[in-house]
């Protein structure tokens, strides 16, 4: 049995807005294991970023978060949600044991300090108190992510780097403390195809070296196929399917996953109409208690689906899906006569 590094249980996030109560995350559970990459995919606004911000405890004040986020540190489990916001303990976990890479490399750095300055700051905080050692570590980390001439680059400012290089520096910074878990929120979306491929190779290679767990968030299925071991598909704040990358791509079960995969054009495939999921994602507000994909689902079965929202049910060893179609026995008593 592989150890799980992070276990999220029934995570719910509510935000009060002018227009009403928004529930962007409505009970999400998953685990990320050692040395594996779990992909979290889903359309924009389905709650991916909020989920990982909740893990790091960096959500807005107005986000009401409930559930459990268990992180195993040195063999014991800690519920990150129960820890005080911005306490020293959570800050040390956040910098040392869990690292994060964001979508926009430029905005993750302060333009006023050199790259080296910003890297050593992190190292001095979590690793060593020796300034010289910190510099050595930083330069070593830059070298590992393939930055040529790291000694010189160490003293340069962020604007002297290109987007792809900055993203690599960000990865170097995230890895410098040897984290157990790396959360990457669309780290390649803002980058060009060529650099995107490069970064993904880099992350795979570094994972092999450090055996860390990666939670990889993206909506690009090409990236998912190339980097992830397991995939969780999110729709409207819930995980609707989770399984190994091969199961998900070869044998998708949930109608939403099927639709998502169908709408990707494969190079060399026929150039007829793409399959597309009709309609739009509803707002996570004023939802009825039934399958949240009901209105857009082409496999909808009036008899089976007119029930409360389905929960994840195992359909294979590693494969679970939340859809009434795969429910063999009927768990809910029939209502009325």
């Amino acid at each position: 049995m592989v150890n799980s590094v992070l276990k999220v249980e029934d995570l719910k996030i509510e935000i009060k807005l002018d227009e009403g109560m928004l529930t962007p995350v409505r009970g999400v559970s998953f685990e990320v294991r050692e040395n594996e990459t779990l992909g979290l995919v889903g359309e924009s606004g389905c709650g991916k970023s909020l989920t990982c911000k909740a893990i790091l405890g960096i959500n807005d004040k107005k986000c009401k978060t409930t559930g459990k986020i268990n992180f195993s540190k040195d063999g014991s489990e800690i519920n990150l949600l129960e820890m005080k916001k911005d306490s020293a303990e959570i800050r040390s976990i956040r910098g040392k044991n869990i690292s994060m890479i964001f979508q926009e490399p430029m905005s993750s750095f302060s333009p006023l300090y050199t790259i080296g300055n910003q890297m050593s700051e992190v190292i001095l905080l979590h690793m060593t108190k020796d300034k010289k050692k910190a510099k050595e570590l930083a330069i070593e980390a830059l070298r590992r992510v393939g930055i040529a001439n790291p000694e010189k680059r160490y003293n340069q400012y962020p604007h002297e780097f290109s987007g792809g290089m900055l993203q690599r520096v960000l990865i170097a910074m995230a890895l410098v403390c040897n984290p157990n878990l790396l959360i990457a929120d669309e780290p390649t979306t803002a980058l060009d195809v060529t650099i995107q491929a490069q970064i993904i190779e880099l992350m795979k290679q570094l994972q092999k070296e450090y055996r860390m767990a990666i939670l990889y968030i993206t909506h690009d299925l090409g990236t998912v196929a190339q980097i992830c071991d397991r995939v969780a598909v999110m729709y409207l704040g819930k995980i609707v399917e989770i399984g190994t990358v091969h199961e998900i791509f070869k044998d998708p079960k949930h109608p939403y996953t099927k639709g998502l995969l169908g709408s990707v054009h494969k190079i060399g495939g026929n150039n007829e109409r793409l399959f597309s999921i009709e309609g739009t994602v509803p707002l996570a507000m004023n939802l009825k208690d039934r399958c949240s994909f009901y209105d857009r689902c082409v496999f909808r079965d009036e008899n089976k689906c007119n029930r409360p929202e389905p929960c994840l049910k195992e359909v294979g060893k590693e494969h679970s899906v939340a859809c009434w179609l795969y429910e063999s026995n009927e768990p809910h008593e029939k209502e009325g006569i």
């Binding site: 060529t194 491929a197 196929a225 190339q226 992830c228 990358v245 091969h246 791509f249 995969l261």
Partner: peptide, 16 residues
């Protein structure tokens, strides 16, 4: 450029 395209199929490993 073509070699860098990430193909949405886990069985095809891209060789950039």
């Amino acid at each position: 450029l073509l070699s860098a395209v990430l193909i949405a199929d886990p069985t095809v490993k891209n060789t950039r």
